[in-house]
């Protein structure tokens, strides 16, 4: 089914459910913490700022605690959540995407997009260099024209645009 790697399970359904339930519990706890900081009571002039999020987060916490317990005590055969080969494929896109997002903050969206597209075309697509350059640069130029020129939507820009005097 998967293109590369083994059909070995990377981790099972059970551990995935435990991790997700724990993450939800953590997120719920963060919301509860901030709501209590703001005041989650009924003040003299109505509900305080944290009133609604506090009870919402209580729901999140209780529901994910139940999920956590259910996942922990669940018996029976543990199905594979994701296989090693599948996980490699997913990570091969997910990790560059994270780097892309970090690059947007550092050098603006247009340069980062050009690098991102070029990287994927060269690394996974194995296209010749002239095609890589044409598509990645053309893509950024087209988006620059559409968003900055025609729709007047300012997107994050970096040193490159400043160098060209476009920012």
């Amino acid at each position: 089914m998967s293109a590369g790697g083994g059909g070995r399970p990377a981790f099972g359904q059970k551990s995935a459910e435990i991790v997700v339930a724990a993450l939800f519990l953590l997120l719920g706890a963060i919301v509860v913490y901030d709501s209590v900081r703001l005041g989650a009571r009924w003040g003299s002039d109505g509900p305080q700022a944290g009133y609604f999020p506090f009870y919402i987060a209580l729901f999140v916490c209780v529901a994910s605690a139940v999920n956590l317990v259910v996942a922990l005590v669940k018996k029976g055969e543990d199905r594979a959540f994701v296989e090693v080969g599948q996980l490699k494929l997913v990570l091969s896109v997910l990790v560059p995407s994270f780097i892309y997002v970090a690059l947007i903050a550092a050098m603006g969206i247009y340069v980062a997009s050009a690098i991102f597209v070029a990287f994927f075309m060269r690394w996974l697509g194995k296209y010749p260099w002239w095609k890589v350059a044409a598509v990645s640069i053309g893509n950024s130029v087209a988006f620059f024209l559409i968003f900055e020129m025609w729709f007047k939507v300012p997107l994050p820009k970096g040193w490159f645009e400043r160098l060209l005097g476009l920012d």
Partner: peptide, 25 residues
Amino acid sequence: TLASMMLGFALAAVGTDPVTGALRL
């Protein structure tokens, strides 16, 4: 379902509180 739905509500609560103007989350 309940946990994900309520997390959605919590995401929607991020930002300026429309009633008091306090900054939430």
